[in-house]
Amino acid sequence: MADSAALNTSSTTLFALPYKQESQLITSVLLPTWPAIILFGLLANMINIAIFIESRIKDSVTILLCSLAVSDLSFLIFIIPFVTSYIALHFAPNWVWPIDRNIMFLSFQWPALTLYDFSCYTSVATGVTRCACVAMPLRFKSVFTKSRTVKLVIALFIVAVLLRMPVLLIYNIVLRPNPSTNSTGPFWVFRNKEIFAQVNDILNRQSMPYINFIIMIACVIILTTKLHEATRVRRSHAAHSHTEKSTHHPNDLKQPDTQRMSTKDIKVVQSVVLVCSIFVVSQLPFSVFSTARLIEPEFDNSGHYKHLFTACSAFSYTCYFLNASVNIFVYYRYNSKYRTTLLSVLKRKAAFDQQSNIK
C-alpha cells in the first residue's frame, strides 16, 4: 500500500500541469486591461470613420483606411461577448452558467476573428498602395482606381470568410440536459475538431500571416530603396546646380533645394514602417504558438501545457485589441489630411457648444 501510495504521488507530481501560477499571474494582469482597450478602440474607430466620411472618400487609400476602421470597429463589437465570458471564467470559475459557456465563447469569437483577418488583409493592401504611390506615382492613379479598390475590399472580405470556413464547420448546436441547472438547453458539439483546427492553424495562423509579413516587409524595402535612389539623384542634381549657381545671379539661389528628401516622402516611409511593425507585433505571437501547437499537440487548451497556452492566448488577444485600436495615433501623426479634418471638426464642435451655452 505504501508503495502504491508513493507511486500515485509520483505519478501526480510527474503529470502535474506546468505553468499554472505563471498563467494565472499573466491573465490576472492582462484581462482587466481588455475592457479599457476595447472601449478606447470603439471610440477611436468611430472617430476614424467619421473623419474619413467628413473628408469625402476620394481616393483608393482613403477607401482602404475607412474599410479598415469599419472592420476594426466590427471586430471589437463582435469580440465583446467572448471577452466578457473569458473574464468571467477567469475571475469566477465556479459561477454556474445558465447556458453552455462555449456558446458565448464561440458564437462570436470566430466571426470576430474573421473580421480581424479582414483587417489584416486590408492593412497589407494599404501598405501596397502606399508603396505604389511612391514607387510608381505616374501609374498609381490609373492602376489603383476607386472602383478597383472597392472590388478589392469586397474580394478581401470574401477571402477572409472562406479561409475561416474550416473552424465554422467544427461546431453544431444540440439540445441536451444541463446538470448545472437541471434543465435542457443548447450545447456546442464538436465534430472532427483536431483535423479542422489543424487546417485553421495552417491557413490562418501560419500561411496567411507569414505571406502578409513578406508582402509588408517587401513594401518597406521597395519604398526605402526608391526613396534612397531619388535622394542620390537629387543630391547629384543639387551639387551640379550649386556649381552653376555660383556663376549666376544671387536671385537664382531662391530656387527650391532639391537636396533634401521631401517631407511627404519621409512621412510615407515612416507610416509604412510603423504600420508594418504594428502588424508584425500583433500577428507574430499567434503565429508562433500555433506553429508550436502543430509541433507539440499537448500545447493546447486541453493538453499538458494548457496553462502556458492560456497565457499565450491572453497575450495574443491583447495584441489584437491594441492593433485594432491604435491606428488613430498613426493617422494623426502621419496623415496631414486626417489631422486637418479632425482639428476642423473639433473646432466646429467647440464653436457650436459655445453658441449653445450662450443661448
Rank of each mutant, 00 (worst) to 15 (best):
S67F: 03
S67M: 07
S67N: 02
A69G: 14
A69R: 09
V70Q: 02
V70L: 09
V70D: 00
S71T: 08
D72V: 00
L73E: 01
L73C: 07
S74W: 00
S74E: 07
F75H: 10
L76M: 13
I77R: 03
F78T: 08
F78L: 15
P81I: 01
F82L: 09
V83T: 14
V83Y: 03
V83N: 09
V83G: 07
T84W: 11
T84N: 08
S85E: 08
S85G: 14
Y86K: 09
I87A: 13
I87Y: 01
A88V: 07
A88I: 08
L89P: 05
P93F: 13
P93S: 12
P93E: 12
P93N: 08
N94I: 00
W95V: 14
W97L: 03
W97H: 06
W97T: 03
P98D: 10
P98C: 05
I99Y: 13
D100Q: 05
D100T: 09
N102W: 07
I103C: 11
M104P: 00
M104H: 09
M104Y: 06
L106Q: 04
F108K: 03
Q109V: 03
Q109N: 14
W110S: 02
P111Y: 08
A112F: 12
A112H: 11
L113G: 02
T114W: 04
T114P: 01
T114V: 08
Y116L: 15
D117W: 01
F118V: 07
